[in-house]
């Protein structure tokens, strides 16, 4: 009801949207950088790839065999939305920002 609470309300909604998204991945442990274990695993693999075109989705799948494809895709989508990674030569190749 207070009119001056408007700016803080909009700030809060930005922060919450990120938190809700991480919650969707069903991983309750959140490390210091705000990513889930799954998201960190995917990000670290992409970071570790020395090729100029980046890591492709097939490589991610073969290196994360214990992980369902949908889970890997979710992590990739999240990291892409947050700006941690970006696609290069096509939509299946990713580099870390």
């Amino acid at each position: 009801s207070k009119s001056h609470s408007q700016p803080s309300a909009s700030r809060a909604s930005i922060g919450n949207s990120g938190m809700n998204e991480t919650g969707n991945f069903g991983n309750n442990f959140i490390p210091a950088n705000g990513l889930t274990v799954t998201q960190n695993q995917v990000l670290n693999l992409i970071k570790a790839c020395p090729r100029p075109e980046g890591l492709n989705f097939q490589d991610l799948r073969s290196q994360l065999q214990h992980m369902p494809i949908a889970t890997i895709k979710q992590a990739v989508d999240f990291l892409s939305n947050e700006g941690h990674i970006y696609s290069t030569v096509d939509d299946d190749h990713f580099k870390s920002t």
Binding site: E82, G83, Y86, T88, V89, T97
Partner: peptide, 20 residues
């Protein structure tokens, strides 16, 4: 190359926006 640079720039902007 242009596509890659554009994607990278967009990703950096998103990352920056999250860290404001």
């Amino acid at each position: 190359l242009v596509r890659i640079q554009k994607n990278k720039a967009a990703a950096l902007l998103r990352l920056a926006a999250r860290n404001v």
